[in-house]
Design a binder for these strands. Structure first.
Lengths: 231, 231
DNA sequence: CCCGTAATTAACCCATTGGATAATTACAGC
DNA sequence: GCTGTAATTATCCAATGGGTTAATTACGGG
């Protein structure tokens, strides 16, 4: 006895269903949502727009992800997951201390430059006080192994006397991320204030060198070590 | 002959008007709007809420500032203006190079820590790709004299041989701001990822020292200069 | 071939919210 | 005191946009 009144869709077009693949559909929604959230923020992103760009119905978004916020969390999880994957390709163990530190700096810088949407997403999540990242079990449990890599580099460098013993892996990681993320995240207000280009290839290259330099000079031990040739 | 129909407000309460001070009212709106925008972003901030908190009618907001976006621009102008004022209190000229650099670092750090709403506002404006700061004549013309101060410190330091000649004032400023802003702006995602406190007085004090250290080691000349006593 | 279930669609709902219209009130200058 | 004007209020409007209801369609297993 559910009965009767049920709304009838228009009866002319049978509306062919495009495909029938749960995982693929979810992945597509996630990708488009990632772009939308990174572009417009949590509030600015529009479910209708996401649906349109993904070529599906809005209802489908809520079918797979129950709400906008849960979709946002899923997007965060995906984005952070990708970063972690990238970090695994960093093999710092084999390098000498200075080379390892510079490589770490350049890798981080390159990653942020190549993934400005990711940086934007992180900024947006911070505007929301990290409320979603906290709610995500995946993300709170996903301890980032990058710290382990840094610790190993530091340990080696310290034992060789090339790196100051008081350097802390966490502090180093914060320092590097601050320098690297800033070039992407605060580009616009900085460029507006100083009419100073941060986006051209030359400016980026210079900044890249500068960050590696800052980092190395920060960690190296005081005994006037090799400044290496930075052409 | 506009005539007749005009909507009549309810006729029981004469609705006493609170005050009649253009500048004061505008200033109050600006202050509340600053808080709201910093808290909730451009889209999240609510005109009704601003009006309620300011104890006025929403219409008044649009009377003084024509639209939400213009209000946001006015808020940005005010916020940046305050920062510039604060920067003027920095007297670096009298200090020796190392002291000047450390003082600059600590001042910047303290300012951002003391004004997280400002940092949030800047982050929000960057999410909007600096579109408002660009539109504001006040802000695009407001060249920040802080660069001048930094240049003078560097010049003095270079002539004394204490600071490397290749250090650039702009790059230094970017570096310092990156380090300083990050501690406020990206606090939440970082804390969530590493379960690592960045908010306690101890953590802040440590970070403050660290940043000064990074900056000084970055600019000082290579001849193993005094590491000074950082107790 | 049939049928249950899961994927997908169409259409609707309604709270929120920038912004607008127009009345009202205070206040300064004559 | 009168009056023009600026400050302020009450009320309304239309669009936007999350989220929902229910119909429809594909598809795999018996």
């Amino acid at each position: 006895m559910k009965t009767v009144s049920a709304r009838r869709p228009v009866e002319n077009k049978p509306a062919k269903v495009r495909r029938r693949d749960r995982e693929k559909t979810k992945a597509e929604i996630l990708q488009i949502a990632f772009e939308e959230f990174a572009e417009s923020g949590l509030l600015g992103a529009n479910a209708d727009a996401i649906a349109a760009k993904a070529g599906i119905t809005k209802r489908l978004i809520f079918y797979y992800f129950n709400s906008k916020e849960e979709l946002f969390i899923a997007v965060l999880e995906m984005a952070y997951g990708k970063m972690r994957l990238a970090e695994e390709d960093l093999h710092l163990a084999t390098l000498e201390p200075e080379a390892a530190i510079r490589r770490l700096a350049e890798f981080t810088f390159d990653f942020h430059q190549a993934n400005p949407e990711f940086v934007r997403l992180v900024a947006i999540e911070n505007i929301h006080r990290g409320r979603h990242i906290q709610r995500s079990e995946k993300l709170t449990q996903m301890t980032r192994p990058i710290i382990g890599q840094i610790e190993r580099v530091l340990a080696k460098g310290k034992s060789l006397g090339a790196i100051r013993p008081e350097i802390d892996a966490h502090e180093l990681h914060v320092t590097l991320n601050a320098l690297s993320i800033f070039s992407v995240a605060n580009r616009h207000t900085f460029e507006a204030q100083f009419r100073w280009d941060m986006s051209s290839p030359e400016a980026k290259a210079r900044r890249r060198r500068e960050i590696a330099e800052v980092l190395w000079r920060y960690v190296r031990s005081d005994e006037c070590s090799s400044a290496a040739d930075r052409s």
